[in-house]
Design a binder for these strands. Structure first.
Lengths: 206, 206
DNA sequence: GCCGTTATAGCACGGGCGGGCTAAATTCTT
DNA sequence: AAGAATTTAGCCCGCCCGTGCTATAACGGC
């Protein structure tokens, strides 16, 4: 048998190269040639693991989504599930803040993700993963609100469907603005707006 | 002297073709050739009015921005300036709702605009117009909140800086989600979320 | 040591791209 | 009628693209 290479690992390495090129030069420059160069491979090698550029893009998008979801769900598990220590309000804030681009690395990730979102508008093959991502985020937000409500920390009588959409859209919008104008909309302001929004949903605690 | 052609009009017609191609096939397909075809011109003609593709893109982006701003400011003048008729709350809602993609046409516009936003991440020459657009929207939101406050219709003690960012981000996020999932996030839900947000800022009335 | 399998490498083709450049058509002024 | 200015048209070059395809290299089982 041949050279020992873990094909899964290789595919991830190539997808990584896609994301690096997309972050640095834009998704439109993530061609097979550029990606192969970035990964230190020949173009033929890349094509050995991916049938074509379309499959590569779908996979790379999936990898990015997986990475983002993994980071969030790690915090979700740590902060949401156990009857953990610390202020519930503070924990909720930290969990949702994890979806925001609070540092340069996550801002880059968000920028590349936005590229995929934009590309999906005219490339149906990307829409599946996109919908899954958005559904996951919506569900997370919904669960957070539900939990908060169950703990009696939410203003009574709120329509959770509307509140979920509102909070989810707020997170998306903050992310979009932070990607567009990192200097104008910095981490502090992102957190302040999110904190203020959560406060506005909470029952008064004096 | 030569054939009589209004160069301003021509440039707008070509920019229009750019926007149509971008809406239909994505900004990456808005090449000089495709745009010339779409406009019913030869490639040489297009290049007579624009020095290169970069200039064309900047101009097209500017045209789109101008169009969006014009629509909003028309409503802004009609709904904000005069001590007009009708419920103040309702007028405010309608003004801000004008920034949302409530129908297919505006959804397309927003999608193309999102393409430019994404492109600007790796093309500095587009950032100028982008920043201007965002600043204009922020200022509009700020002014609306100021006016509402001046009329005494706002919960006292609000931090208008934070509220401006929050509302502006909410509008951006709603737009983004409506572009991504037009079926899931329809016009009714957009309006409902916006109305609810404005209500949450208002003093109780009854 | 040999072979089959798999990884790596990359040539070659057709096509789209931006842009330098030339040439023709058009139309107002003289 | 002649000529100058402007618009329209598009050839041609070099570059990058994806992909079909072939050739070589690496390595484990026999």
């Amino acid at each position: 048998m041949p050279k020992i290479v873990d094909p899964v690992e290789r595919r991830q390495a190539v997808a990584d190269a896609v994301l690096r090129v997309a972050a640095r030069e834009g998704l439109e420059h993530a061609s097979l040639r550029n990606v192969a160069d970035e990964a230190g491979l020949a173009i033929g090698s890349v094509r050995h693991y991916f049938a074509g550029s379309s499959e590569l893009m779908i996979f790379a998008m999936g990898e990015l989504a997986r990475r983002i979801e993994a980071r969030i769900h790690t915090h979700a598990a740590a902060l949401l599930d156990p009857a953990a220590t610390g202020d519930r309000r503070e924990r909720t804030l930290q969990l949702l803040a994890e979806t925001l681009p609070l540092d340069a690395e996550r801002r880059e990730e968000a920028g590349v993700w936005l590229s995929f979102v934009t590309a999906a508008r005219t490339r149906p093959e990307l829409r599946g993963r996109l919908a899954k991502m958005q559904a996951g985020l919506d569900e997370l937000v919904h669960r957070v609100l539900l939990e908060t409500d169950r703990a009696g920390a939410l203003t009574p009588g709120l329509d959770l469907t509307v509140e979920t959409r509102r909070l989810s859209a707020l997170l998306d919008g903050l992310t979009l603005q932070a990607v567009q104008h990192p200097l104008l909309v910095g981490p502090d302001e992102l957190c302040a707006v999110l904190r203020h929004h959560l406060d506005s949903l909470a029952v008064a605690r004096d």
